[in-house]
């Protein structure tokens, strides 16, 4: 029970980070990035390729993160231009379908070129007991990285001009322009950040188990569920929802079984939309 709970929190923090990347892009650009998981795995594959080419782990990880970030920057600079010219419902639909297409392309290329390539970051050492539960070093390191990045994000969004700028554009784009913020540049920045965060989640997942092309869709779906339950556009909501869903995930697979777990998570998203579209943690209108 306690071990399931702790597993849940560990998993949940990663879910949260996964959701943050998706929720930010929706908040800033009105685009549901259905290629989020694909970008994440692409980053992980780049890391594993770099490591196979004898690049040490840390620089290899940085290369992978950079690759995912650059990819998203390119998407913003090219495909998304047409989306930004649209407004309202048709913009959202266009963004969604184009990112779905991008997801297919990444999935297809990965399955074609790297069908069995996986990133597994085995971290040695004996399991360390935490609250009486032995935790593997890989899972502890993954948690530590996730927590640190989470804190960095909190500080960034609360205390830096750019971080506040990002939040201001999400809340009121015109208001942001009127204080001298260029929404397009903030959007570009967030696309890069989102790619980086996605790849980072894939890398931390690789510390506890291998990540390969088969994970793409489940990453995207998880990110979507987390972002929806947390309230699309809400960063703190995504983190809270991530932890909540992580705990729900572990507890229900502990007590009920895995296939029901996925259904429960999906139902959480569906029920949130129907009952409280602004998200469990967002303010309702």
């Amino acid at each position: 029970m306690i071990s399931a709970l702790m597993d849940g929190v560990v998993l949940g923090l990663q879910y949260g980070l996964l959701g943050v990347g998706l929720t930010l892009i929706y908040g800033l650009a009105g685009v549901i990035n259905l290629a989020h998981g694909q970008v994440a795995v692409m980053g992980a594959i780049v890391v594993s390729l770099a490591m196979e080419a004898d690049v040490p782990a840390v620089p290899a990880i940085l290369i992978g993160l950079a690759a995912a970030a650059v990819f998203m920057l390119l998407v913003d600079a090219t495909l998304m231009r047409a989306v930004y010219r649209q407004e309202g419902e048709s913009r959202i639909l266009l963004g969604l379908l184009i990112m779905l297409g991008v997801g297919f392309v990444i999935d297809g290329v990965l399955e074609w070129r790297y069908p069995i390539q996986q990133l597994g970051l085995r971290i040695g050492g004996e399991p360390i007991p935490i609250l009486g539960v032995p935790m593997s070093t890989g899972s502890l390191l993954a948690t530590a990285v996730t927590v640190v990045i989470g804190l960095v994000l909190v500080v960034f969004f609360r205390s830096t001009a750019l971080g506040r700028g990002v939040r201001s554009v999400i809340q009121d784009e015109q208001g942001a322009m009127l204080v001298g913020i260029d929404p397009a540049r903030v959007r570009t920045f967030v696309f890069g950040l989102s790619g980086l965060l996605a790849a980072l989640v894939a890398v931390t997942r690789a510390m506890t188990g291998p990540v390969g092309v088969s994970s793409t869709i489940s990453f995207t779906i998880l990110a979507l569920i987390v972002a929806v339950v947390g309230g699309l556009g809400s960063v703190s909501g995504a983190f809270a929802a991530g932890v909540l869903l992580g705990v729900v995930d572990r507890l229900s697979s502990f007590y009920i079984g895995t296939y029901v777990t996925t259904i429960i998570l999906l139902l959480c998203a569906a029920i949130t939309i129907v009952a409280r579209p602004a998200g469990l943690f967002g303010r309702s209108h």
């Binding site: 001009a161 750019l162 506040r164 700028g165 939040r167 201001s168 809340q171 009121d172 015109q174 208001g175 942001a176 009127l178 204080v179 001298g180 913020i181 303010r283």
Partner: peptide
Amino acid sequence: VPAERHLFGDMSVAENLLLGSYP
């Protein structure tokens, strides 16, 4: 200052003012 004000409703007064001096 538009009539609809376009404040950042979910941010504090202080944060709204800080954003005023952006960047």
